[in-house]
Design a protein around this nucleic acid. Structure first.
Lengths: 126, 126
DNA sequence: TAGCGATAAGAAAATATTTACATAACACAA
DNA sequence: TTGTGTTATGTAAATATTTTCTTATCGCTA
């Protein structure tokens, strides 16, 4: 999925999200949304810009970052105020590592999705 | 992740959820929670039992099923009231196919997670 | 030194979600 | 014909989340 025209699954897409959680308590540590935000911060070097791209308020984006770092108990982002451009936010080395692992997993997942979807449509068309 | 003792990622787990969405509108069609519910309905043959297992109210579980079928515009579950046991809910052939695809993807994802996590800890320990 | 654009953060208002409650139908069995 | 356990569904109450507004700080630049 997405399936071929005429299939029940036309225009429907089998998708996934990646997140971090505590193994024992199952508490969410980093949601898919928080990962997306990190990717956008990396791309734009700005929390304001990332928030706009995600179509959420700056206030919410700021809270997402705050919660990410609070839950992990280490920082992911270097932030600064003032200066020529008003300030910026960039991933620190820990943030980069995490985002790199995320990207690797995403790439592997994308391949899995393709394989399984192909098999699915072979099955329902037999 | 979960990482080795002493690692920043000790007790933290890299995880995922699978869902269905509309390719163009990005509208959610079947959430992870709805997939979980289908799995439990398959296992127990009852919406009431599945709701209890998921620790949500019957009312909510019923709404999740209703929305699933509404969004897909075809049914996934055969439901009946009355009878010896009061009634039951079971997956119909479409429901079974979907749940089977879900399980296949889940199995492939689990392997991917293992691979990537291993690589991650090789990286941060070098 | 005034302005600009970004981060920082509290608080209230607006929305959305979830739970709780209530009532009913259904079909079998005792 | 009454009881039992399930599905069916509307409504109100309770919670949670998100947005909006506001005020502040920071450091370069004109």
């Amino acid at each position: 999925m997405a399936g071929p025209k005429g299939s029940k699954y036309y225009d429907v897409f089998l998708d996934y999200s990646i997140f971090l959680s505590r193994e024992e308590s199952k508490e969410l540590v980093l949601t898919h949304e928080q990962f997306q935000l990190l990717l956008l911060i990396e791309e734009f070097g700005s929390l304001t810009a990332a928030a706009k791209k995600m179509d959420i308020s700056y206030r919410k984006a700021w809270e997402l970052v705050r919660q990410s770092e609070l839950k992990l108990s280490f920082t992911l982002i270097d932030k600064s105020r003032g200066g020529r451009d008003g300030g910026h936010s960039t991933l620190n080395p820990d943030g980069k590592l995490l985002v790199d692992a995320y990207r690797q997993l995403r790439d592997e997942f994308d391949e899995s999705v393709k394989r399984v979807v192909k098999k699915f449509f072979q099955t329902i068309n037999k």
